[in-house]
């Protein structure tokens, strides 16, 4: 549709094209942001790159699917239930599995590969490999000037914004959030100040993976749900977090929105694997020349 329009009056259609791409990009970017913030939070607290992060996205999508189609819950309740369930699951997994690997970068990371295998194949056994589809949350299209926005996507935006605002409030203005940020900044000083890090590890991991699950739950009505859907969001979270700087939440926010916009703007002009190639090339350059990320401070 976009391609067809581009043959018309170029001046008008160019603004339309860019406007539509920017809006789509911001919507996708918000979702990447939910994934990436969870990912960077886990890294910040535990110094572990969580290869199972995409599997929690997948679990979140299945949780929303089961809540809405099997239990007939409203979508809001499904998202809430998903958040709480995965928070508890993440807490338990941290205590049972990840406890021995806190602060151990390489072994912890390999352990999350094992965790990802367990979660993905567990979902395969329970739900089977076929993609399931879930009813859309809302019908219809809203038009902002020439830009068209499907209601179902607007829902995603609204939910993501609410989650992000809640997260911001928790991290910046609550005792637990402050303690969590202190642990991210410097674990030893946080301990010395009397922060009980044995709670902060499972809390950070739980919130991190629950955010991934919420992203999955929000996308479940838009895309289909299957056990293998976790790998793409994981890859995007990787890219966002490297660009933003490992452990940096503001960096992740900037990088997620930039990534979303880049993908949407590049979409009409080049194939997706070519834009992925550009991205990976850029990410490698970024890691080499500025490993601390877009907003990160140099050296650690």
């Amino acid at each position: 549709m976009i391609r067809l329009r581009a043959f018309g009056d170029t001046a008008v259609d160019f603004t339309f094209l860019i406007g539509q791409a920017l809006t789509n990009g911001l919507i996708i970017g918000l979702l990447y942001l939910l994934m990436a913030i969870g990912f960077t939070l886990v890294f910040g607290v535990m110094r572990v790159v969580n290869f199972a992060h995409g599997e929690f996205y997948m679990l979140g999508a299945f949780s929303a699917y089961v809540c809405v189609t099997k239990l007939q819950l409203p979508f809001l309740a499904a998202v809430l239930a998903t958040f709480i369930l995965t928070l508890v699951l993440g807490w338990i997994i941290e205590v049972v599995v990840m406890k021995g690997f806190r602060g151990e970068e390489l072994n912890g990371m390999i352990a999350t590969i094992g965790l990802a295998m367990i979660l993905q194949n567990g979902a395969l056994m329970i739900f089977g490999p076929d993609p399931q589809s879930m009813p859309a949350v809302a019908e219809g299209v809203v038009s902002l000037g020439p830009v068209m926005l499907p209601m179902s996507r607007l829902y995603v935006v609204a939910f993501s914004l609410v989650v992000l605002v809640l997260l911001y409030g928790f991290l910046m203005h609550s005792k637990g959030g402050r303690a969590l940020r202190a642990v991210v900044q410097d674990i030893e000083i946080a301990n010395a100040q009397g922060i009980r890090s044995q709670f902060m590890y499972p809390l950070g991991f739980g919130i991190g993976v629950a955010l991934a699950a919420v992203a999955g739950a929000l996308m479940a009505p838009v895309f289909s749900v299957s056990p293998s859907i976790g790998s793409t969001p994981l890859l995007k979270a990787f890219i966002v977090v490297i660009l933003g700087g490992l452990g940096s939440i503001p960096g992740a926010a900037l990088a997620a929105l930039l990534l979303g916009v880049f993908e949407s703007v590049a979409n009409p002009f080049m194939s997706s694997s070519f834009s992925d190639m550009l991205l990976f090339g850029f990410v490698i350059l970024m890691l080499i020349f500025r490993p601390s990320g877009l907003l990160g401070k140099a050296g650690r």
Partner: peptide, 20 residues
Amino acid sequence: LQGVYFVLVTFCFGELFRLV
């Protein structure tokens, strides 16, 4: 690059190779 950073850059390179 050390530790996790090396892992991530090699991960990206592997993906880049597959795409190429």
